[in-house]
Design a binder for these strands. Sequence first.
DNA 1: GCCGTTTTCGGCCCGACTGTTTTCAGTCG
Length: 581
Amino acid sequence: MNRQQIAGTLAEVATLLELRGDNPFRVRAYANAARIVESLQEDLATLAAENRLTEIKGIGTDLAAKIAEMLTTDRLRFHDELKASFPPGLLDLLRIPGFGPKKTKAVYDQLQVDSLEKLEAACQAGRVAKLAGFGEKSQQKILEGIALLRQFSGRHHYHTAVAAAEPVLEALRSHDGVIRCSVAGSLRRCRETIGDVDFLVSAKPVDAPGIIADFVGMAGVRAVSAQGETKASVVLAGGIQADLRVVSDEQFAFALNYFTGSKEHNIAMRSRALKLKNLSLNEYGFSPAAEKEKSAKELGSSIPCRTEEEIYAALDLEYVPPELREDMGELAGTLPQLIVKENLRGVFHVHSTWSDGVESIEAMANAARDLGLEYIGISDHSKGQRQANGLDETRLRQQAVEVKKLNAKFANQDFRIFFGTEVDILPDGTLDFDDATLAQCDFVIAAVHSSFTLPVDAQTERICRALANPKVTMLAHPTGRLLLEREGYAVNMPEVIAAAAEHRKIIEINAHPYRLDMDWRLWKRAKELGVKCSINSDAHSIEDYQYLAIGAAIARKGWLEKNDVINCLPLKEIEKVLKRG
DNA sequence: GCCGTTTTCGGCCCGACTGTTTTCAGTCG
């Protein structure tokens, strides 16, 4: 088992123990261990071989033995036994928002409910409301929760889909018969959530069956849903559906364009082809509109195009990057020079061991410098975040001293650490630190971490109030929409964006996996109002810097250019922006 | 189950919110 699998198993043991009603502190020990293993920088196998697992804080003799068992036998007997003692569908109930282990245990013990379907039926029959501790309202919320789960089941975060797609693409690329290959669909367009992952390959017809066979036989494939001559569908481990299409190399550009979509963009392209050139366009090529029965599939494209650029050129268009293909005005007028991750010169919203990060400030700084960045902004949590070891006023002052010392070290290396804080926005819109305390910071990130269920108006009002505070520089993770399978906080984002415009505040683009940032349409709105953004990593470890690339992808989706993103500025200029606040 | 010790067992983060209660339990971050 690798690190992630071990962490996942430990986390599931914690859940199962909780379901069994075990000692809550034992449960926490497993949950802690899962988190520790997940973010561990050192190699687990090495630590185990050297008998040093118990040196990790939070891992005692028992957990060390269990980790060692997973490393050597690829399973954990304790986990197997625990899992076998519950019906397989029971864990699904925990995915309902607001439905935890105690409630799961209650419906299981008293109503023999052990699946989402049975729970739904029990609610509809009014049996759940009659249980002690439940009522009409909880029964209604459960039904809504199940509906929400259904709506998003089968959709995956962009991150998850990218991680699943990469090894598949690698395998396809290394296949002898494959001439060109690419991802297509919503993944290529960098949508926040992805339904299924589409792959496109060009090859000679004679090679197609071999490519298809290798695809369905790949290591990560859990099930094969369809397999034909030029097309196959599989379910990857993790439950992501993946489709492969094999076309000839002459068709590749047209097929790539067609399968990248969006559907709306394709419609706009086809109607432009008809209107402008009297040609119909499909996944095989252009063909004269009059010759419907003899399509491009049999005759080849009447305008051969080797690349997508040539297709757009054939329609007198400049190349449209996949991120912009949503029929949101991309075929009319000049397109922006979209940002790429190489444009980033620094990163804000970086955590350290002062709160809940796993690395020292110096280690985070060095790693950022190694990536070619010129500055980082350290912003650990404020005192209200006790569970994250948030800093109080005293520790914040001490941290300021450390940052000053480190900056002296970096002075002749053209690198700088900006000193900041990620301060909580309290329910009334005030902040977790007073103005005098915030005054010592180079920048202040305001964030919501509690009271997620305030009414929309109150939620919006408190965020806008925080943005009106002159000490605040930027707003963290503006989750303005439903998260996958879970309710985010409901906010009137257009109002928040307007407030950011009025007070000249920066809104963060945060691509950390447990955040789903705001809808790309809202970023377009922000751009129109002149609101700047900052592409941050919310890094709690060095690995987390990888999310800058995904942040840049989100920015592209919102049509953002270098001028819209403050951390594209070099060190000398960013100081001025931060001072203005 | 871990930690830290007052070396052998007691303490382990906590506040807000919701829906159920009539003083609290469950869930969440």
